[in-house]
Amino acid sequence: MHANFLDPFQSRPSLVHSLDARVKVVLVVAFILTSALTPTGAWPIYVMLIAVIFSAEIVSELGLAFYMKRALLAIPFVLAALPVLFTIPGPSLLSLPFGLQLTQPGLERFISVALKSWISIQAAVLLASTTPFPDILVALRALRLPRLLVAIIGLMWRYLFVMVDETLRLLRARSARSATAANPALRPGGKLTWRARVAGGMAGSLFLRSLERSDRIYNAMLARGYDGEIHSLPVPAVPPSAWAALTFGLLLLAFIIAIGRLIY
């Protein structure tokens, strides 16, 4: 049982994949910011943003269907925005029972929020699935994240798969013994608090084993000359083509923001 399925990176020989990770991180965040700055109900701007992200997705060679599936993740949260349909005052479009009035500004606000989150999550999926994690780490370092934090996140990623494997094995061992009695009249499952305590025991044992493992890792690091300082190779310069992509991307986003401001 291996948790490699967790790694969202999908290798392809595409232009999006080969773009410098630092540039990609900046562009993705700028894109999400652009979408956040788009006024409510500015539909042409949303169309432009969708066109931009779709284009990037097509060029990444992973297929639009892949992105659409991953983008569904944000759907459950849309529930949180449902009430604005009825609470923002404005001309009523539809009267519902319980005195609820579906208003036009409410509908506009709701659709805008849903569109923003759908557009933004696609950009985040694009980043994670076209950039190997070590490159993202280098990008975080280049963007002046504290070295210590980057080192911790790097080590976390390394052991993430080990820990998830361990957790899956624990869960499997539990379900292998979750059985019914020979007497079919007995109700299986135990009490709720007991089930919770068992899950808690698994969490506790995972925690203790991790603490012991971190001791071994620390010793192995010391054995290779670790002195608490994080040494890393210097980050290579951003190549001119990446600078060009960055400039083009930022100009495009600035243009989209400007149109939004100008028209609305």
């Binding site: 210590l148 080192a151 911790i152 996140i153 790097g154 080590l155 976390m156 990623w157 390394r158 052991y159 993430l160 080990v162 820990m163 995972l206 925690f207 991790s210 603490l211 493992r213 971190s214 001791d215 890792i217 620390y218 690091m221 994080i230």
Partner: peptide
Amino acid sequence: RQVPVMGVLAAA
């Protein structure tokens, strides 16, 4: 010690 301890526990 913090890098190994924090990293492994975050993974856990």
